[in-house]
Design a protein around this nucleic acid. Structure first.
Lengths: 226, 226
DNA sequence: ACGCGAATTTAGAGCGGTCTAACCCTAAAT
DNA sequence: ATTTAGGGTTAGACCGCTCTAAATTCGCGT
């Protein structure tokens, strides 16, 4: 199946939106994500439907077919492998890799993908803690943990994933010790959703506005579960 | 200046054709190289002329302006740095890197370019022996040496560059020891241009059809010059 | 100087991806 | 059951890049 870069982008964002909602994905959500207008999305969705990559119910949004999901997983695998490679071997900071990976993800061969995976020893997560789809492109399990917004004052959690793409936010977070693997003491949850926490081994607290916090996935250490 | 990938490709091939001919570059030469029809080339040349990237005389071919040459050098730099990086750090064979570099050359950032160059310690040639344009994109000197087709039986030469892109030809050549840096004894020049030679330290001779040989640039070791 | 063959350009069309403007459907509120 | 606000879709246009077919120009050979 010969797909354009643009089609691949649509499938990727549909996949990623599907990871956070369970609902069918709406035209306008895709339009927002890709920075195009809704008529543009509608016409692309028609093409993707024709090719059997999505199921579409007019006016009600779309879901990926298995085939569409496989394509999306391929792109996501490319993206996350690239992110891992860039931080590991080209000295990029985790806050910078997203844009570069976005540029490259559509343009690497299967061979390149395999060599990068080898160089990294078949990694399972990228620098943000996001799981890298396996080479067989089987849909991965839903990862452990929940968004940090579901916890409250006094909870102690471990950061698993920071699923944000904005380099400014990411470098702010890493400046304050918020990275995958770090333990977080939740100090306060403000009424408007902002979470204040302290990373282990740190003096300075860090505050996460709600929309940032929503993308921070954490687990609770076993011995502290309620 | 925001150029499309396609425009960059045109500038790159004009540059490369210009390296081998001194003449103005003809529509049909570009068409051959890019595998498109001549009307397609004509219309693209009009656009490149409008943007001041080429000088065009209708029916007489084009040359790059300084600005066009700078763009071309940027792309060539990307391409050759990528080729070097792929062989050096991702275990590619020199015969395989061309296609991958072609895929990626338009899609890397200045930052990526700089990091790759750092990782390779500012290399000056790619795995085929082709000079890598420097970061300032000044037009490089014409490299030493001449095509091996200009030599005859009994000459001893050193391979400087194998400017071919076909993986089959390249791996045939490296199987027979023909690689940059290798010394070659020219055994025979057939009337139809085929050159038979032996790489130093080898028993098996190797024959290069004329169109292959034309792309093998060599120098004569100083002590043997005539 | 002329004509002819080869190459180039012009003319016009098509496809992919995008847009704006206009219209239509859905779902929620009354 | 009706209305209505908000989003979705249709219609029609445009741009970039490509093509084929037709017209033009070049330059060589006589």
């Amino acid at each position: 199946m010969m797909l354009s870069d643009v089609m691949e982008d649509y499938l990727k964002v549909i996949y990623q939106l599907q990871q956070e909602t369970d609902d069918r994905i709406k035209t306008s959500e895709i339009a927002d994500e890709l920075d195009v207008t809704s008529p543009t999305v509608t016409s692309m969705l028609e093409k993707l439907e024709e090719r059997g990559l999505i199921d579409r119910e007019k006016y009600r949004g779309v879901t990926l077919t298995d085939e569409g999901e496989t394509v999306a997983l391929e792109i996501v695998r490319h993206h996350r492998l690239l992110e891992a490679y860039l931080t590991e071997h080209l000295d990029y900071d985790w806050s910078e890799v997203h844009a570069e990976a976005d540029r490259l993800e559509h343009h690497i061969s299967e061979d390149f993908e395999a060599r990068v995976a080898d160089a990294l020893d078949q990694p399972e997560v990228d620098p943000h803690g996001s799981p890298i789809p396996s080479a067989d492109l089987e849909p991965p399990e839903r990862p452990d943990g929940k968004s940090v917004v579901e916890f409250t004052e006094g909870d102690v959690v471990v950061v698993e994933e920071v699923a944000d793409h904005d380099p400014d936010i990411l470098s702010y977070l890493s400046d304050h010790g918020v990275e995958p693997g770090v333990e977080l003491d939740i100090l306060e949850v403000a009424p408007f959703g902002m979470i204040t926490a302290r990373a282990s081994g740190r003096d300075d607290p860090v505050s996460l506005p709600e929309d940032v916090a929503r993308h921070v996935r954490v687990t609770q250490p076993a011995e502290l579960e309620q």
